[in-house]
Simulated assay, not measured.
Amino acid sequence: MKKHKKRRIYRKLFRFVFFLFLVFFVAFFLSGGTSFFSPRTWQHVGDFLPKLEAVLPANQQRDTVQEISTVDRLSRLIFLKRAVDARIDQEHYVKLRDIPADMQNAIIAVEDNRFYSHCGFDLQGIMRATLVNLQYGEVTEGASTITQQLVKNLFLSHEQSFGRKAEELLLALDMEANYSKDEILELYLNTIYYGSNYYGIGPAAKGYFDKKPQDLQLPEAAMLAGTPNAPSLYSPYVDFMLAKKRQFIVIDAMVRSGYIDKNTAESAKIKPLYLAKPTE
């Protein structure tokens, strides 16, 4: 009898404890406890880890991008912000609020028109870019999203392989999970190569037009937005006429995307540009 009594007591106690756990987890999730599983929550854990040594972004490394171990790759995925911070040039970093809307819109229009609606990769954008390139008879728009280009600029080599492409996709999804769209755009504008050895919008605005980014006008912004597609070709210091042709393409893309009207576009195309250095 005593054994049966004890078993009943244990069962009741187990049911009671199980009920308490159930109530706790229900309350936990209803009160926003799901954020515990959010990728952004884990980024704060990275703050307690040793700070990573500053290193140049992948697109600024002259030699082949250094290979990293599988453990380091996983660490980069889990603590992405820690890895990003180690590769950002804080000295020349420009906040999005100090970058004119025309510059932001020009980049989005020509590089990734659906930037604010995709989750890091864009199948519709791939088809659109293909049609635009066929229309112009040359590669004027890329199929990679701004997010994909950002993670490539920061971390990846130019190797064309399934493994590297898979890593790019994972990092792009991770970036979208941990950063807002405006933060991603800000990082992108500060890390892309604008040609003539100018990395980031701050050095590019100064180097090409002797201006701060916030002082850029539409024609200047459109020319800068055109350079990342092929920096060694579209730099106005390399070939001004080719850079001007590319500027027209960017301005037309802004019209198609609804950022400017046709009259504003035609006015921007004929407005003279004054470079900081004379061209040959």
Rank of each mutant, 00 (worst) to 15 (best):
L273Q: 05
P228A: 11
L224E: 05
L123P: 02
Y234Q: 00
A143Y: 01
T34M: 11
D215H: 06
Q43W: 01
Q160P: 00
Q135F: 12
I201M: 09
K181Y: 08
I78V: 15
M254R: 11
K271G: 00
Q90L: 06
E67L: 11
N105Y: 14
Q124V: 14
A166T: 15
K212I: 03
K262R: 12
L171W: 06
C119Y: 15
V255E: 06
R87S: 06
N113C: 05
I9R: 15
V55G: 06
L150G: 02
F248H: 07
W42T: 06
P203I: 11
L224I: 11
H4F: 13
Q149W: 15
F162V: 09
M103R: 11
K245E: 00
Q214F: 11
V45D: 01
K206Q: 12
R11E: 12
Y179A: 05
S180I: 13
R73I: 15
E168Q: 15
L169I: 14
I260C: 03
K12R: 15
M223R: 06
A268Y: 03
I107K: 11
Y188A: 09
D85C: 00
F18Q: 06
P231S: 04
F18T: 13
E167T: 14
A86Y: 02
V65G: 08
S196P: 01
T147Y: 08
F121R: 13
G142A: 08
V132W: 08
V94S: 09
G32F: 02
Y198G: 02
P39A: 12
N59M: 10
G202Y: 09
S196Q: 08
F240A: 00
G163Q: 13
E111D: 09
E53Y: 02
K212G: 00
Y10G: 06
N113I: 12
L96C: 10
M103Y: 14
Y116L: 15
R164E: 01
Q61C: 01
H44G: 00
N178F: 09
S75E: 15
K152C: 02
L242G: 00
F21A: 05
K212T: 10
S232K: 04
R114V: 14
K181S: 08
L20C: 14
D261K: 07
G258W: 03
K206E: 09
Q214W: 09
Q160Y: 07
